[in-house]
Design a protein around this nucleic acid. Sequence first.
DNA 1: CTTGAAAAGAGCGGCCA
DNA 2: TGGCCGCTCTTTTCAAG
Lengths: 165, 165
Amino acid sequence: MDSIDLKILALLQTDATLSIATIGERVGLSQTPCWKRIQRLEADGVIDRRVAVLDPVKLGLGLTVFVSIETADHSEDWLERFAETVASMPEVLEFYRMAGDVDYMLRVVVADMQAYDTFYKKLIATLPLKNVTSRFAMEKVKSTTALPLPLPPSARPSLRLAAGA
Amino acid sequence: MDSIDLKILALLQTDATLSIATIGERVGLSQTPCWKRIQRLEADGVIDRRVAVLDPVKLGLGLTVFVSIETADHSEDWLERFAETVASMPEVLEFYRMAGDVDYMLRVVVADMQAYDTFYKKLIATLPLKNVTSRFAMEKVKSTTALPLPLPPSARPSLRLAAGA
DNA sequence: CTTGAAAAGAGCGGCCA
DNA sequence: TGGCCGCTCTTTTCAAG
């Protein structure tokens, strides 16, 4: 995982339609070694998958909601089933177990308020929750899947972090 | 935008490596019309982009933080600059302007707590904020880019349940 | 929309440095 | 490792039904 790999990843997480030849060109490699690196990154699971990112608004999915959940005290088994149930709901794009005052955090995407209400009822029906707070997004300022990779070419924010490896 | 288009989108937002022949096969179309549909969906912006999704943990980015921000009262111009600044930070993967008690909501991905502290200082340095609450993720239960498309083929979750419709 | 097919391009793999 | 050079497959385009 050297700096060339990071460059390749930075390119691919922005635009996965780039040809291997183009990527190789940009990172200063010819096709073959570039291709081999990408294969390895995929085999290692660093590249998890390649997907098409759709425009939610154009598909009538204009409402994003952040949901904070506090569970009542439950057995581990219970929580596991809860997690499974919620994760299976397609409206839930992200779902994290949290530290602190909130137990779970969800990012939900639905068509409109009515659709959210339907989802909400479905959610609270899965099990008794101590507290569910819904926060509604008015405007999407930014939304990306690109991770903050340490850009190796020129500007390096803080070099020392790599020492842990 | 008929049900075949939705099937195509459902496939592509899950796996963008599928060949056109395969997609056509699965939606009951031959290559040519299937290809034309995908071209149209891209031209219309329904398909926004194709990206590689990377594994944050394998890249040493193991900490996800949800940040709630309440701004003090500011001019519209001021807020615009704030939005611009925050959006330009690569650690910020998602950034929404919210309705209600919280003004902005961020999803931030960093390496560790120390890196988050660095980010946090950078964030509050941009402008005086009334309140910044950081919530830390302990476990990622689910994270997808796939939107909840109304699956038209067969199983439709619960169409009639919402009697209010 | 379908079949068929051809040209262009990209992925893939072997072999050499 | 990286680089050159093919082979194969997909994508892309076009014709005709």
